[in-house]
């Protein structure tokens, strides 16, 4: 079992739900990366998704796109983020999952990128514009360096495809809760429960639920559908506004959930 999967399984074995915050690396400057990660791990998050800014983030909504534009304006790049992480990797106690679009990885060079991930202690990689069909090359190059390739499953994926994605995905399966891009949502489709039941049945690894989860209530209700949640835009907004209390409330909601499920 990989480090990333193990971290989630441990939460699961304890009867709890995983909480994975997404941060836009370098939103506020490269120097914010270390304190943000250390603060989040102190709150007891399960893993941290480290987003890399990109000029053309097609899978992201306005919140993350704007955070990305701020980071780009600070001169943040994939290379600089990995170098920054490598400097304090001994202090990092939770698995880091890098989320980046594919082109910066290609420009880095797959082999150099894999080595830099190893040096930075990165345990997982999400590339939203590399679907199952194109993903073999990532597993081939990154797995030998201890990096899992996490695949996404969407509401539009038919059952047969869901099963294939769940088999190929590593660490966890990233289940997208809406047809759409990242960002906050008032409500979710009705057929979610059935969709997630099928997904969990076909997956031998944990299923984390993400996209559009922005309130403590949604952390609880969406967390029930899988083995935990990924919260992106709401965390990015809270960190940008310096409202760490909001982050604490979201993480706390996942802990309340733990208490509920152990009752």
């Amino acid at each position: 079992m990989t480090t990333l999967q193990q971290a989630i399984e441990q939460v699961k074995i304890a009867g709890n739900k995983a909480f994975v915050p997404y941060i836009m690396a370098g939103d506020g400057g490269l120097s914010t990366i270390k304190p943000t990660i250390l603060k989040l791990q102190k709150l007891g998050v399960t893993a941290i998704e480290v987003g890399i800014p990109f000029t053309d983030p097609v899978a992201d909504g306005p919140t993350i796109e704007q955070a990305g534009e701020r980071a780009l304006a600070e001169g943040v790049t994939l290379r600089k983020v990995l170098e920054t992480l490598a400097v304090f990797r001994e202090e990092i106690t939770v698995p880091l999952v890098v989320m980046t679009y594919f082109n910066p990885v290609l420009a880095y060079g797959l082999v150099s990128f894999a080595e830099a991930c190893l040096a930075a202690g990165v345990k997982g990689l999400i590339v939203p514009d590399v679907p199952l069909e194109e993903s073999a090359i990532l597993r081939e190059k990154l797995n030998p360096h201890g990096v899992d390739i996490v695949q996404l499953v969407s509401l539009t994926s038919p059952p047969e495809r869901i099963a294939r994605i769940a088999t190929a995905s590593q660490g966890f399966v990233y289940a997208v809760t809406v047809n759409g891009i990242t960002g906050t949502r008032a409500s979710f489709a009705d057929d979610l429960a059935g969709h997630f039941a099928r997904l969990r049945e076909s997956s031998h690894i944990p299923v984390l639920v993400g996209f559009g989860i922005s309130t403590p209530e949604q952390v609880v209700s969406m967390g029930e559908l899988g083995d935990g949640v990924i919260v992106g835009s709401a965390i990015v907004t809270a960190l940008h506004e310096g409202d760490f209390g909001k982050v604490e409330a979201l993480v706390a909601a996942s802990k309340n959930m733990r208490e509920k499920s152990t009752l």
């Binding site: 514009d129 679907p131 069909e133 194109e134 996404l152 499953v153 969407s154 539009t156 994926s157």
Partner: peptide, 20 residues
């Protein structure tokens, strides 16, 4: 059938679009 022209092309899109 994978949408390749030599090494070019392919389907580098979010999963939500793959079924479409």
């Amino acid at each position: 059938k994978e949408g390749r022209y030599g090494k070019f092309g392919g389907q580098f899109v979010p999963e939500t679009l793959m079924t479409a």
